[in-house]
């Protein structure tokens, strides 16, 4: 369980990225974080594992206060939190297997990792994860030889290799096409359900957030302006989060996209 308590982040420039954000994520819950660009979604996610240092407030993973940890303990806490990135953030010149095994870096010593002599069970587990995300045949390829969707799957496997208690997911679909986006979101949600993992997903696409998450938090200018079930996300709430816009038109457009996609898929299936 994750508790975020009155988290505030003020950047050196004086910009307030987060203003006293509080919420709790119970075990197994997939939480969607939506909001306009610059609302502080990325900062919030990075404050949880302290890739960005919060100014005030606390983050509790179970009973452990992450914000109070010294550097060494922070490292041990980080390995309990898996992170999946926008644009994948794989180490491009390493192989798929090395990327997945890098999820174990917090657990093995420097020389073992330097010589790539990871413990047997880590390698077995990495194969199992690659199989789970459908990339078992690509273990030996370099990460930059894969397509976008495949790379994000490697990213997911790397996060899972940490054997995490929480997943932080930053715009997982930002550079993927609509179909691949849905596949990736489905995979994430399935894995969270299998392992009863809580996850926080930063996401731009409101329709996708509603389709795949169990709860949505809307962030505007660093403040929580909505926290509730995806069904409750109506026009007035979206206006509160994003400002004035014709939301029904956007929804219709998204539905059309969806239909068009399905049509195209059927047409192509017919052609084969």
């Amino acid at each position: 369980m994750l508790t975020v308590d009155a988290l505030t982040k003020t950047y050196k420039t004086g910009d307030k990225a987060l203003r006293s954000v509080s919420f709790t994520v119970p075990k197994g819950q997939v939480l969607g974080l939506i909001g306009p660009s610059g609302a502080g979604k990325s900062t919030l996610i990075r404050c949880i594992n302290r890739l960005v240092e919060p100014t005030e407030g606390r983050v509790l993973l179970g009973d452990l206060d992450i914000t109070a940890l010294p550097a060494g303990d922070l490292r041990r806490a980080r390995r309990r939190i898996g992170m999946i990135f926008q644009e994948y953030a794989l180490v491009e010149r390493l192989t798929v297997m090395e990327n997945v095994l890098s999820g174990r870096l917090g657990y093995v010593g420097f020389w073992r990792s330097f010589l790539r002599r990871f413990p047997g069970e880590d390698v077995e587990n990495a194969f199992r994860l690659l199989d789970r995300v459908g990339l078992i045949d690509h273990a030996d390829k370099r990460a930059d030889a894969l397509s976008g969707g495949q790379r994000q799957r490697v990213g997911i496997a790397r996060a899972l290799a940490q054997d995490p208690e929480l997943l932080l997911i930053d715009e997982p679909t930002a550079s993927l096409d609509p179909k691949t986006s849905r596949q990736i979101m489905r995979l994430i949600v399935e894995i969270c359900a299998e392992q009863d993992l809580p996850a926080i997903i930063n996401i731009h696409d409101v329709v996708l957030a509603q389709q795949f998450t169990q709860r949505i938090i809307g962030l505007r200018a660093g403040e929580v302006v909505f926290d509730g079930a995806p069904e409750l996300l109506d026009e007035s709430v979206l206006t509160r989060i994003y400002g004035e816009e014709d939301w029904t038109a956007m929804r219709r457009a998204a539905e059309e996209d969806h239909h068009a996609e399905r049509d195209a898929a059927e047409r192509m299936a017919g052609m084969v």
Binding site: N49, L51, R75, R76, A77, R78, R79, R80, I81, G82, M83, F85, Q86, E87, A89, L90, V91, E92, R93, L94, E98, S102, G103, R104, L105, G106, Y107, F110, S113, F114, G155, R158, Q162, L168
Partner: peptide, 29 residues
């Protein structure tokens, strides 16, 4: 690329591991 470094940091890697996995592959060529 900062994102690759960040990703290795997020796994709980130590300083030497960060150099080996995050920086070295990017600067080796």
């Amino acid at each position: 690329e900062a994102s690759q470094i960040e990703a290795i940091q997020a796994t709980g890697a130590g300083g030497a591991q960060l150099l080996n996995y995050g920086y070295w592959p990017q600067i080796a060529p």
